[in-house]
């Protein structure tokens, strides 16, 4: 079962991503605050994560770092999806262990394709 956790604070973007992934047959969970994102992840136990960078109370980079430090989430596919488009941000994301990095606004098909590739789901 493909199960994605959306860590994203913009309700409309959560709405859009949920629609896309649900339509593709994924199980979708969403979380919109930085503070307890890691706890939510552990609770929901997804097999892929879409992570925003600019979140209230805690940066996506920090969350990424903490997740990668947990044994269960060391290898989980994490797609960093952010409105910050600078190379510097991409480098930080990759250095801290992001599986992929995409800049908003995104193409729906692209996000889906990337996520399916990350979880090893044949198209």
């Amino acid at each position: 079962m493909r199960h994605v956790l959306l860590i994203e604070d913009e309700p409309n973007i959560i709405e859009a991503l949920s629609f896309i992934f649900l339509r593709d047959g994924w199980k979708v969970d969403a979380h919109s605050d930085g503070a307890n994102a890691v706890a939510t992840t552990v609770q929901t136990a997804p097999n892929a994560i879409i992570l925003d960078v600019m979140l209230p109370n805690r940066s996506g980079f920090e969350i990424l770092e903490e997740l990668r430090s947990l044994p269960d989430y060391k290898d989980i596919p994490i797609l960093m999806l952010t409105a910050r488009g600078q190379t510097k941000d991409r480098d930080i994301a990759i250095a801290r262990g992001a599986s992929q990095y995409m800049v908003k606004p995104f193409s729906n098909a692209e996000v889906l394709k990337t996520m399916n590739a990350l979880v090893g789901h044949a198209p």
């Binding site: 913009e10 409309n12 973007i13 709405e15 859009a16 991503l17 896309i20 409105a83 488009g85 800049v103 908003k104 606004p105 995104f106 193409s107 729906n108």
Partner: peptide
């Protein structure tokens, strides 16, 4: 980018 993301999606 944030509103544009929603609009595009």
């Amino acid at each position: 980018r944030t509103p544009m993301t929603s609009i595009r999606a």
